[in-house]
Design a protein around this nucleic acid. Structure first.
Length: 796
DNA sequence: AGCGGTGTCATTTTT
DNA sequence: TGACACCGCT
């Protein structure tokens, strides 16, 4: 296969570039991913570079997965363990630290490669605990402020002592929190997200042997979305490439939108200073948008001063003017969007639409409007599966089982479900732990035998201690999924949820089923408990766009890297977009403008931009007058069609519309779904275990993964087996298995299915032939199957 | 120990 | 609107 075919001359130049540093300034829609993937394939096939010597790093799992998939396609074979490494910064660092991090204990006493990962919830809980320890409350410094300052400091490699030197008193206070926070992380042998990068950097700096080994191995490195790298990522990159500097970075300074998270736009702006012999290639031909959209977006971003400057061009057509719509209020704005989408999709049901907004809170009104029209939509982003309370609770048990000193996890579940260990007792344990610099677990053990506790509290704590010991032996003796199932029973967690008959309770039980399913799949691929927890910590699940649903709702941030034929940008008002928080500095305003630019350039054919003359903020009772976003003024007049409700070009009379809309509500039921995560979980394990390829046994799994995601109960209600496909894969079941009664069928047994292979029974509703089984098949997800119709048999 | 009432405060969030 | 901290009652 010729990997240069179909590429323009600049893309070819980038793909065939061999040694030395290269900066690819890749404008929106200029074929960036194409260049990276073709380059990887070209290095391997045409230049005979050993595949494992190639490292490509991205920011998101989604991007990494996409790249792996495309490289595999180009190579015509799955990426095996001997293939190029395509991964995220954080995953890479976790693997590095787990495999080669032992010597970090020289720098960080008590560190072991079995460290726990603390996510944002855990970090917040830790900061709260530090406040309690100091007897502080939020009145001086808010938790979130402290956390973000700590994170920022870590990204800049600053220590608490560095912050201490700052002149302002607030920073001094934060320095104290920072110091305690760090001490407590060490005590728990835990690393937060920033640490994953930072400690990897420190290890590579400190341990020459490890560094040399990695330098030796990775001869070619590529970094995607370079404009969003932070200091640690930059240093990591330099340490990994070593003197060789065979580094290719790809980015677009105009799409740098994560400075508030530590991304340093200087990294890309100064690349040529960092690497004086760097070659620069600009990809300015856009293959995505119409000329109108491109010119409008370019005109806006040209208002930024802090940029390298480029001008995108296209050979594509002029396209329609962008539409600006002024709504009287936010409700009307939402109805306009829904109505227009309806017209578009009626004309062409194959079209795809995205509605982008600045803040998540804006989605609610738009969702309501879409629901009124009975239009299916997907909200991308928001809560991930692994962030749900019930899932996090169970994971906290798991983390505690692995590491008793993980005090944050212990705190989370010690009284969930309620087992008589209340605030007073907890305070007592915590104070004891603070006083003696112990983890909560050690404090608890000592207190139990000290006789200082009330009899009732002591008994409760003893029972808890026993419980955790029992769980530990469970995980020692049983395979992961069984141990997990037993954990849910033993802890009483399952019983607690079963007592909850609300729809939420039902949903939570289903989430735990999904968790079991994920564990079953992990186990069948030989993953350990540690792998399972790493994945849970590192995945955000804003991934996988649902190809089956025509309308996606997402923040402008989440839209980066995506494209849609039709894009709506909503809420374009001063204070909202640009956001009021950004008004203080020019730099922040420029970032808002880049975000706006990112939004505009997502559109392929049509771009609609809407704003409301008045909008109610939060729950206040009255609408406030708004001002139209300055960004709209920055678009050349001749490229837009600007109208308001009064002169509505679409002929939309929204007051009359309301009647029709109410009718529609009656006809349609709720069709929206939040981004569900089961398929993402499957994908993850798929990608780690067997390769996602268009042929082979995984094809059905892929197909299922891209089908509309739906909650299992909903899928069942809709009459299909699960996730949009008939579960039994072919109607009437032969009688072959019918006689062999399903004796012994119960949750926990493994069954064989002719199509899906072996799977684990998670749930059984009803008895005998009529029983409905929820079975997890690795690679195929959860299936709901009626026992008598399916050709399943129990495996030994 | 655990519930419910009241007051306060609101970005974005790849991992 | 809704997430939360805090407080007082049982």
């Amino acid at each position: 296969m010729d990997f240069l075919e179909g590429l323009n001359s600049r893309q070819r130049e980038a793909v065939t570039h061999r040694e030395g540093p290269l900066l690819i300034l890749a404008g929106a829609g200029s074929g960036k991913t194409r260049v990276i993937t073709h380059r990887i394939a070209h290095l391997i096939r045409a230049q005979q570079v050993p595949a494992p010597g190639i490292l490509a790093v991205t920011f998101t799992n989604k991007a990494a997965e996409e790249m792996r998939h495309r490289v595999a396609q180009l190579l015509g074979e799955p990426l095996s363990s001997g293939g190029p490494i395509v991964t995220t910064f954080h995953s890479f660092c976790v693997r590095l630290l787990r495999r080669d991090g032992k010597s970090l204990s020289d720098l960080r006493p008590a560190f072991t490669p079995q460290f726990t990962i603390y996510d944002e919830d855990d970090q917040l809980a830790l900061v709260k605990s530090v406040y309690r320890q100091r007897g502080w409350d939020e009145s001086q410094v808010q938790y979130r402020i402290a956390l973000s300052r700590i994170s920022h400091a870590k990204n800049l490699k600053q220590t608490p002592e560095d912050l201490e030197k700052a002149p302002d008193p607030k920073t001094k206070l934060i320095a104290n929190v920072f110091r305690d926070y760090e001490a407590r992380l060490r005590e728990a042998n835990a690393l937060d997200f920033d640490d994953l990068l930072l400690q990897a950097v420190r290890l590579l700096e400190y341990n020459e042997q490890v560094r040399e080994a990695y330098n030796h191995r990775f001869r070619f490195m590529m970094v995607d979305e370079y404009q969003d790298t932070n200091r640690s990522q930059y240093e990591l990159m330099r340490l990994l490439t070593g003197r060789r500097s065979n580094i290719v970075v790809v980015g677009d300074e105009d799409q740098s939108i994560y400075s508030w998270r530590g991304a340093d736009i200087r990294n890309i702006l100064d690349f040529e200073k960092d690497f004086p012999d760097a070659k620069v290639i600009r990809l300015e031909q856009n293959y995505r948008s119409t000329r109108t959209i491109l010119e409008a977006a370019s005109a806006v971003v040209a208002h930024n001063r802090d940029r390298k400057g480029k001008w995108l061009w296209t050979e594509g057509g002029e396209g329609s003017p962008a539409v600006i719509y002024r709504a009287p209020d936010a409700e009307n704005e939402a109805l306009f969007i829904a109505h227009t989408i309806e017209k578009i999709l009626r004309a062409d049901p194959q079209d795809r639409v995205a509605v982008l907004y600045r803040t998540n809170a804006q989605s609610r009104r738009i969702e309501e409007a879409l629901r009124r029209y009975g239009r299916k939509y997907v909200v991308v982003g928001g809560f991930s599966f692994y962030q749900r309370a019930e899932v996090k609770d169970i994971l906290a048990y798991l983390k505690l089982v692995r590491s008793l000193d993980d005090s944050i996890s212990l705190m989370r579940i010690i009284n969930v479900p309620a087992r008589g260990i209340g605030k007073t007792t907890l305070d007592q344990i915590e104070r004891f732990a603070f006083a003696h610099h112990l983890s909560l677990w050690s404090a608890l053990e000592r207190l139990i035998d000290s006789g200082q506790l009330l009899a009732r509290a002591e008994a409760a704590l003893r029972a808890f201690r026993e419980l955790i010991h029992r769980l530990r032996s469970l995980f020692h003796d049983l395979p992961l999924p069984r141990a997990l199932r037993a954990l849910m029973l033993e802890t009483g967690y399952k019983a607690m949820l079963e007592a909850d008959s609300t729809p939420q309770g039902e949903a939570r039980r289903e989430n735990l089923d999904e968790l079991l399913s994920a564990a079953a799949e992990a186990a069948m691929r030989g993953e350990t408990l540690a792998d399972f927890l790493d994945h849970a910590a590192l995945s955000s699940e804003t991934d996988a766009l649902d190809a089956g649903v025509a309308v996606s709702l997402l923040t402008a941030h989440n839209a980066k890297g995506l494209e849609f034929p039709i894009v709506f940008l909503a809420g374009l008002e001063e204070g909202l977009f640009p956001h009021s928080r950004s008004k203080n500095s020019e730099a922040m305003l420029e970032e808002e403008r880049r975000l706006f630019y990112v939004g505009m350039t997502r559109a392929q054919k049509r771009l609609y931009m809407t704003w409301a003359k008045s909008r109610r903020r939060y729950g206040s009772d009255s609408d406030e007058a708004t001002k139209r976003s300055r960004f709209l003024e920055e678009i050349p007049r001749e490229l837009v069609e600007d109208f308001s409700e009064a002169e509505d070009a679409s002929g939309l009379d929204l007051s009359a519309e309301r009647h029709e809309v109410r009718e529609a509500v009656r006809r349609h039921r709720y069709t929206g779904t939040a981004q569900n995560s089961l398929e993402n979980i499957s994908r993850f394990f798929e990608e780690r275990g067997l390769p996602p390829l268009k042929t082979g046994p995984w094809a059905p799994g892929r197909a299922a993964a891209s089908a509309p995601s739906r909650a299992p109960s909903e899928a069942a209600a809709a009459g299909t087996g699960s996730f949009g496909r008939p579960a039994t894969g072919g109607g009437a079941a032969p009688a072959r298995f019918r006689s062999r009664k399903l004796a012994g069928m119960r949750p926990g047994v493994t069954v064989a299915h002719p199509k899906y292979g072996s799977g684990l029974v998670l749930r059984m509703e009803g008895t005998g032939e009529e029983a409905k089984l929820t079975i997890s098949f690795p690679g195929h997800g959860l299936k709901k199957i009626v026992a008598k119709y399916a050709e399943i048999k129990i495996e030994e």
